[in-house]
């Protein structure tokens, strides 16, 4: 494996959790709900998934429980913002704070436990191909899943009837409701999907990425996933590019150091955030005012009778 291949591999694994979480949030936001609780749902996914994997000594159960934990958190959020039409920004923030705290309580007994590595996929013949072999056919299953997820979400939103419904609801919930579209049910499902993805991204961190659980291990990745959705102008393909750009920036920042480029580390650490802001500005320049934000994003919906 050459150094270049190795760097690409690192970038792919750093980008995968961001992509999975961003894809879930993208669907939720397309339906018109802004969920700022991604970080909290990820933290819960990481803690619950790890706890289950250790308790039952099974990675599969761990993944399932992590996904469930994220979904349950999203359900709580849905209860507040859909059931009671509570403020979305505040509720999302509350979900993050709550999730970080609760995940600490759940994970505490599992500090110090470890899991064996999950072996990456190996396809005989293909994986050993020179050049692209390891990169394309030697990743863990999550990487392939995240790519399949992106394609699936893109097809769902762009080509399917339910996807069209979801987008219509996100654009204008009042007229969608007038047309008889199920606004609240669609949003509930979109939110739960977002929670499942965030939970999965969290499990990826604790079971694959580091293989142990520690408090606060999501370290702001949920917020980055949120930024990616805007960065991507709510399009799955751009979110894929964005996630990989962000992953590249964080990894290359470390390589720039190891490769001895004399810049302050803080400047390099800040680069991805500044780049996101610049990208937001450039996107809006290129496309006029509307940068593709769903029209009803963040607004509570109360059906009129």
């Amino acid at each position: 494996m050459t150094a270049f291949e190795a760097i690409l591999l690192t970038i792919v694994t750093a980008s995968t959790p961001l992509l999975i979480a961003a894809m879930g949030e993208l669907v939720a936001e397309r339906s018109g709900v802004l969920n700022l609780g991604v970080e909290g749902m990820m933290a819960m996914g990481a803690a619950c998934g790890f706890a289950a994997a250790v308790t039952f000594d099974s990675t599969i159960i761990g993944i399932a429980v992590g996904v469930l934990a994220g979904t349950a958190m999203a359900g709580l959020f849905a209860l507040a913002v859909l059931g009671l039409a509570a403020n979305q920004v505040g509720s999302g923030l509350a979900l993050t704070i709550f999730g970080l705290g609760l995940s600490g309580l759940i994970g505490a007994p599992f500090v110090g436990a470890r899991r064996d590595p999950v072996s990456p996929l190996a396809i005989p013949g293909l994986t050993d191909l020179p050049g692209v072999g390891r990169l394309m056919f030697g990743q863990d299953a999550f990487v392939y899943f995240s790519l399949a997820l992106t394609v699936a979400v893109a097809l769902f939103l762009g080509r399917s009837r339910s996807g069209l419904t979801l987008r219509a609801i996100g654009e204008n919930h009042a007229s969608a409701h007038a047309l008889g579209l199920p606004v609240l049910r669609t949003r509930l499902l979109a939110l739960l999907f977002g929670g499942a993805c965030a939970g999965l991204a969290g499990v990826y961190l604790s079971l694959i990425y580091t293989r142990f659980w520690s408090p606060g291990m999501t370290a702001g990745r949920g917020w980055i996933a949120l930024a990616l959705v805007v960065f991507a102008a709510w399009r799955p393909a751009y979110a894929l590019i964005g996630a990989y750009l962000f992953g590249t920036a964080t990894v290359l920042q470390l390589h720039a150091q190891a490769g001895q480029i004399g810049l302050p580390a803080q400047l390099l650490s800040a680069a991805p955030y500044v780049a996101t802001i610049l990208a937001l500005v450039l996107l809006s320049l290129g496309r006029g005012r509307a940068i593709g934000a769903p029209g009803s994003l963040g607004q509570p919906f109360v059906p009129e009778r």
């Binding site: 909290g40 709580l76 507040a80 509570a86 505040g90 509720s91 923030l93 509350a94 979900l95 993050t96 704070i97 709550f98 999730g99 970080l100 705290g101 609760l102 995940s103 600490g104 309580l105 505490a108 408090p215």
Partner: peptide, 12 residues
């Protein structure tokens, strides 16, 4: 963590 969880719950 109990305090953190409580603050989140309170806001919700």
């Amino acid at each position: 963590d109990l305090t953190t969880a409580f603050q989140g719950l309170l806001l919700l």
